[in-house]
């Protein structure tokens, strides 16, 4: 069953805009992961070698030096950022359509994701 989204033409536009955002985010993530994978092959890195943890400060330097961890971590961050960006886009779209209930739901989801970050850091500390 293919359906017409509620919200009429604006609802359809929002569906398409979010679809393109998801597709774009996924392809960018995969491109970065492929670059990291090629750097692993070039450097003879085993996937079972001790992997460096996430160090946001080192990502740019690693990428400029062509090192695998930089590409891989940026790709993994892009993977995780894509659904979050989708929620932000939906929040803006619903607010423009004055669908305040759905805009509030979007804010609620963003709050839950933010809580995940805060709690993970608190537990780690």
């Amino acid at each position: 069953m293919t359906g017409v989204p509620t919200g009429g033409g604006a609802g359809r536009d929002l569906d398409v805009m979010i679809a393109r955002l998801l597709t774009f985010g996924t392809y960018v993530s995969i491109a970065l992961l492929v670059a990291g994978y090629l750097a692993m092959l070039a450097g003879g890195i085993s996937p079972y070698a001790p992997a460096p943890g996430l160090d946001p400060g080192a990502i740019v330097a690693d990428i400029l030096a062509g090192r695998a961890p930089g590409f891989l971590w940026l790709g993994l961050l892009a993977v995780i950022a894509t659904p979050t960006a989708r929620i932000v886009a939906a929040m803006v779209g619903f607010a423009r359509m004055r669908e305040w209930e759905m805009a509030s739901v979007s804010v609620g989801i963003l709050v839950v994701i933010t809580l995940s970050v805060i709690l993970a850091r608190l537990v780690e500390a």
Partner: peptide, 9 residues
Amino acid sequence: AYVAGPTAI
């Protein structure tokens, strides 16, 4: 990251 990259691709 070394495992996640190739597996996700």
